[in-house]
């Protein structure tokens, strides 16, 4: 395993909300119900209507009642020699993206999609399946899926995944920057283990770790990044294969909370840049208060 640098945090273990309180001169900071309600301004009353959200994961079980309507499902796979007409071939990667009926190889993507749907019930949800084609070499497929999603300009991209392969870091970095300047919010999960992985380490993504409060709307800003925000990641009710739900813990489940909130922000404030959405998230964080 690649050891993490000292001081790297990926969840709020050992600290509480008061320990990471941030005071700001900016007006409008604060959580729901407080005097300056940044959360209400950012996403209050919004449903994510018309916002295009992409879940890059293991696929999505489209019939699951908690996922709701899935606009389109895609699968990234190795392009067979001499073929490629069936799907969109990713230049230079040897992969193609094909439209599929849906389905989830493990349940991970379905769980994430259900959390997004719970927070942004009217968003347009697409699935890009990059897991499930064996256990080796999945990084290439992951890169092809991210590139495909970024080039299509989704408003929000949820990726509760990461790779530890340093060779992929520069490509992912470029794609994250491309998303950032292209107004795609690339929301990425911090690894749950003390390893150095990507893309959550990049400043152009919105990186997410877990807090253990039982509140899906509670967002905390981390004044000691690279993890920038903490969201609900403990005992999260999430869709489970076959139609039920299970309570799950992990950063994988915190990330779609932030993706859902981002969908509500860009639905309510059309035309915001990624930079502006990050500011809105900062001001909506419950540990950020006006002086």
């Amino acid at each position: 395993m690649t050891a993490a640098p000292d001081g790297l945090t990926w969840h709020l273990l050992g600290r509480d909300r008061d320990a990471i309180e941030v005071r700001t001169d900016w007006a409008g900071a604060g959580a729901a119900g407080e005097r300056d309600d940044g959360a209400e301004w950012a996403w209050g009353g919004a449903s994510g209507r018309g916002v295009r959200v992409c879940v890059i994961d293991s696929g999505v079980e489209t019939a699951h009642p908690l996922v709701g309507p899935v606009n389109a499902s895609y699968l990234v796979r190795e392009a067979a020699a001499g073929q490629g007409a069936e799907g969109e071939r990713e230049s230079g990667t040897g992969h193609e993206v094909v439209r599929v009926a849906g389905g989830d190889s493990t349940g991970h993507g379905t769980a994430c999609a259900s959390i997004i749907r719970g927070l942004a019930p009217q968003c347009e949800l697409d699935s890009v399946q990059v897991l499930g084609s064996g256990f080796r070499g999945s990084g290439d497929v992951l890169i092809a899926g991210v590139r495909w999603a970024v080039e299509r300009g989704y408003d929000v991209i949820n990726m509760s995944l990461s790779t530890t392969r340093r060779a992929f870091a520069p490509i992912l970095h470029d794609l994250a920057d491309q998303a950032y300047f292209g107004r795609s919010l690339f929301v990425a999960s911090a690894h749950n283990m003390p390893v150095e992985s990507f893309p959550w380490r990049f400043s152009s993504v919105i990186s997410v770790g877990s807090h253990d409060a039982d509140d899906p709307g509670l967002l905390l800003y981390n004044p000691r990044p690279p993890v920038e925000f903490f969201a609900r990641g403990v005992q999260v009710p999430a869709a489970w294969p076959g139609g039920g739900t299970r309570r799950c813990t992990g950063n994988s489940f915190a990330t779609p909370h932030v993706a859902g909130l981002c969908a509500r922000i860009v639905g309510k404030h059309r035309g915001m840049t990624a930079f502006q959405v990050k500011q809105a998230l900062f001001l909506a964080s419950a540990n950020v208060r006006s002086q």
Partner: peptide, 27 residues
């Protein structure tokens, strides 16, 4: 089979997970 169940989940996602109420799912 490695692709099945929670083992498949963590192998593919490379992420650990805790499921707190797994007993009601025989799979």
């Amino acid at each position: 089979p490695a692709e099945r169940g929670i083992a498949g989940w963590v192998l593919q996602s490379r992420q650990p997970v805790e499921v707190h109420d797994v007993d009601s799912d025989a799979h």
